[in-house]
Design a protein around this nucleic acid. Structure first.
Length: 171
DNA sequence: ACGATGATGAAC
DNA sequence: TTCATCATCGTA
């Protein structure tokens, strides 16, 4: 089943957890591709010191304040595009970063593999857009691990501590 | 372990 | 307009 705005209209932490084991789908030309999501991170609101939203509303983070189910794509380190999906509720700045899918580890590598760039920013997550998420309707049998987030030392010891990184546990 | 690389946000 | 910083990655 394709994940719609309703799925993303929940807190980022839950969405990030549920996305593990779900599928990231994309279209390239006339072909479609699909891979299991293996790593995500939640950025949970204005009080989350690791989040861009901790600085308030800016031109860059504007999409985070938008409706759940739109993409937040931004450029870092002069080299890499980061793929995020905004979570609910509307006007509450939160999002989930896609850090890895099967066979591709690292947020910059994911966007590179999918040829994702700023063009996707603010777009709604639908099949029509060309990048979407899906999940089997039955129960999934996998284990999810939690840990602290990567590359956010600027958030300080307290902000960095939150276990908002989710990974698929290979048994 | 470290430099590349350019947009971003805050300061001046 | 300048400056430090950055939700990273490839190379060493």
């Amino acid at each position: 089943m394709v994940l719609d705005s309703k799925f993303f209209d929940r807190c980022a932490e839950k969405v990030a957890y549920d996305l593990i084991g779900s599928r990231l789908n994309w279209r390239s030309g006339d072909k479609s591709y699909s891979r299991i999501i293996t790593e995500t991170e939640a950025y949970t609101g204005p009080d989350d010191l690791a989040s861009h939203a901790a600085k308030g509303r800016t031109k860059r983070n504007e999409p985070m304040f938008g409706p759940p189910g739109i993409f937040y794509v931004y450029f870092v380190y002069g080299a890499h595009w980061m793929l995020n999906i905004v979570t609910g509720p509307v006007e509450f700045p939160a999002a989930v970063l896609i850090r890895g899918i099967a066979g591709i580890q690292g947020p910059g590598r994911v966007t590179k593999a999918l040829s994702i760039n700023g063009n996707l920013n603010r777009k709604l997550v639908t099949k029509k857009t060309g990048v979407w998420f899906s999940k089997p309707s039955g129960p999934m049998k996998h284990k999810v691990s939690r840990s602290s987030r990567v590359g956010i030392a600027y958030a300080g010891p307290i902000g960095s501590m939150r276990p908002y990184r989710f990974t698929l546990d290979l048994k």
